[in-house]
């Protein structure tokens, strides 16, 4: 081994990536070459300096990552498989207690499908209970509304599809469907309607996973005043610590004087230790004191 190939081997030797033979001839060369020995010492020192620079994740970060991932996954996994949207409900109707189940379901305006007809499976009937009325005879009168399911296929940017997706994001009773529609919409070019829908979801959606997704989708608009207002509101009002932390992260993308008061207010009442620490860090980044004096 000559000096040049020895020099090439410095790091590979330190990483244990040389073969046994290569290692042997590398060490033989070092023994007989003072120049390479000195250079190799320098290489070791570089490695140590690099080791010292490693930035490890702060311990609470892993817990936060896991918790929020679970929220996001729960809502992702809740997405109905296409077949479930057709047939998911009907087996309940053929159970002996079917008639009772039917009435109970009606109160929640849930929907189910009629038994699939083999001749026309692509066009199943969807029924929705509009109204139930017990009669004096002991029987019950149920008003149902039948609708045929239709398929629309088109680009998510097509106006009709776009509207339906916006409506599903806002109004569907199925969190998985809301999340999925939101995902598709978020990949579309920005629009005021989309932004409004996301803001609505951030404030009103009952599912924290969907709210977290709305926050993710609002990232590109994080410096707009209305979005910042909604973030501030979420920061103070949302009961989910993952969402409060994300709201701070997004707000901190643009440091404004007005945030100091907000963060100071939050830090006083915050019950979650991670959010509290994130708040304190944010205040320090803005050179503000943690307490209100």
């Amino acid at each position: 081994m000559n000096c040049e190939s020895a020099t090439r081997s410095f790091s590979l030797f330190l990483y244990g990536e040389l073969s046994i033979e290569e290692e042997q001839s590398f060490q033989d060369h070092l023994e007989g070459c003072a120049g390479c020995r000195k250079a190799f010492e320098a290489e070791k020192a570089i490695h140590q300096a690099l080791d010292a620079r490693e930035k490890l994740p702060p311990a609470p970060l892993l817990a936060r990552c896991r918790r929020d991932l679970k929220l996001r996954l729960d809502v992702t996994a809740a997405r109905p498989a296409p077949w479930r949207a057709w047939f998911g409900w009907w087996p309940a109707l053929v159970r002996p207690a079917g008639a009772l189940a039917l009435v109970a379901v009606g109160f929640f305006a849930a929907r189910w499908t009629s038994a699939p007809r083999p001749d026309n499976t692509l066009d199943p009937m969807v029924s929705r209970v509009r109204y139930v009325q017990p009669e004096s005879s002991g029987k019950v009168r149920v008003v149902i509304e039948d609708t045929r399911q239709r398929f629309l296929t088109g680009d998510p940017g097509d106006e009709q599809i776009h509207r339906l997706l916006l409506a599903a994001t806002r109004e569907s009773s199925d969190a998985g469907l809301r999340a999925e529609s939101m995902d598709i919409l978020s990949a579309q070019p920005a629009s005021n309607e989309l932004r409004g829908t996301l803001l609505y979801a951030l404030e009103h959606d009952p599912n924290p996973g969907v709210r977290l997704k709305a926050l993710d989708a609002l990232k590109p608009y994080a410096s707009a005043p209305d979005v910042r207002g909604a973030l501030a509101k979420a920061l103070l009002a949302d009961d989910n610590p993952g969402i409060r932390t994300q709201a701070i992260d997004l707000l901190m993308q643009k440091k404004e004087e007005a945030m100091v008061g907000l963060l100071q207010e939050l830090v006083q009442k915050e019950s979650d230790s991670y959010v509290g620490l994130r708040c304190q860090k944010a205040l320090r980044e803005m050179d503000a004191s943690v307490g209100t004096f």
């Binding site: 490693e54 930035k55 490890l56 994740p57 970060l61 990552c65 991932l69 996954l73 992260d249």
Partner: peptide, 24 residues
């Protein structure tokens, strides 16, 4: 994964994002 993300990206916010994106 979080260690890689943190050391490479050097901010807790970016490491958090990378973690979520990776596992999703």
């Amino acid at each position: 994964v979080l260690r890689v993300a943190m050391n490479l990206l050097r901010s807790t916010e970016d490491a958090y994002d990378a973690y979520q994106e990776t596992f999703l």
